[in-house]
Simulated scan of single mutants.
Amino acid sequence: MSRTHIRALVHHRSLRRAVRVVVPLSALGVILLAPRAAHADAVDGVYLAANSLPVVIANLRRLIMGLLFAVATLFLVLAGVYWATAGGDPSQVDKAKGALRNALIGYGLAVLAPVLLELVRGVVGG
């Protein structure tokens, strides 16, 4: 390696190190220089939650159902891939059946999520 190549490499490494330090420090500076909470109006009172309990439970229900359906669909696709690529291998077929079973459990939990959340709402008293 030539000297100019080594110098360029060292310069590149030092530049990367400088960026690794400067970017987080500048982000911290922006956060500290823009304190929005200090200018909050305390006349209206303090609100601990932006939504009521039924709204929070409805949002939670949608989130849980969406996640469960997404994961169950992923397992369903994996089961199909395992089954299609099994080629008669019993271990691959068992793997596909396990993924299919997990997908069905996920879909079942997604369907039962509203019932379970209503149960929680009844216990909490919302």
Score class of each variant (00 low, 15 high):
31 I>W: 11
18 A>P: 00
101 R>W: 07
55 V>A: 15
91 S>E: 09
19 V>K: 04
117 L>E: 04
91 S>D: 11
109 L>Q: 03
115 V>M: 10
101 R>H: 11
29 G>A: 15
15 L>N: 06
6 I>N: 08
31 I>F: 13
73 T>H: 00
53 L>H: 09
17 R>Y: 07
34 A>P: 00
88 G>E: 02
99 A>T: 01
14 S>E: 13
32 L>C: 09
54 P>H: 10
5 H>P: 01
104 L>N: 05
20 R>L: 11
68 L>I: 12
31 I>C: 11
41 D>A: 07
92 Q>D: 08
119 L>E: 08
8 A>R: 14
123 V>G: 10
29 G>K: 03
16 R>M: 12
105 I>N: 05
120 V>T: 12
91 S>G: 00
101 R>K: 11
57 I>E: 03
73 T>N: 02
71 V>I: 15
44 D>T: 07
105 I>H: 08
75 F>H: 10
74 L>M: 11
59 N>Y: 10
79 A>G: 15
19 V>A: 14
89 D>Q: 04
95 K>M: 09
37 A>T: 06
13 R>F: 12
105 I>G: 03
45 G>I: 05
33 L>M: 11
112 L>I: 06
5 H>Q: 14
54 P>R: 08
3 R>F: 12
94 D>H: 00
83 W>C: 03
108 G>Q: 08
57 I>P: 02
108 G>C: 06
124 V>A: 15
44 D>H: 14
100 L>C: 06
95 K>Y: 00
107 Y>V: 14
55 V>F: 11
67 L>G: 13
104 L>F: 12
84 A>E: 02
82 Y>D: 06
54 P>I: 09
29 G>T: 09
74 L>C: 11
21 V>C: 01
73 T>Y: 02
85 T>S: 11
81 V>P: 02
61 R>E: 15
115 V>S: 06
111 V>G: 00
89 D>R: 05
9 L>Q: 10
79 A>H: 03
120 V>E: 12
49 A>R: 05
115 V>E: 01
104 L>R: 08
41 D>P: 03
88 G>H: 01
114 P>H: 01
92 Q>Y: 00
16 R>D: 05
69 F>H: 12
80 G>E: 03
78 L>S: 12
76 L>P: 01
1 M>K: 04
68 L>G: 07
12 H>M: 13
115 V>L: 14
68 L>N: 06
52 S>E: 13
97 K>H: 08
29 G>V: 09
61 R>L: 07
38 A>V: 05
71 V>F: 05
76 L>R: 11
30 V>K: 02
24 P>E: 00
85 T>C: 05
61 R>M: 11
107 Y>H: 10
77 V>Y: 03
94 D>P: 00
84 A>M: 09
117 L>G: 04
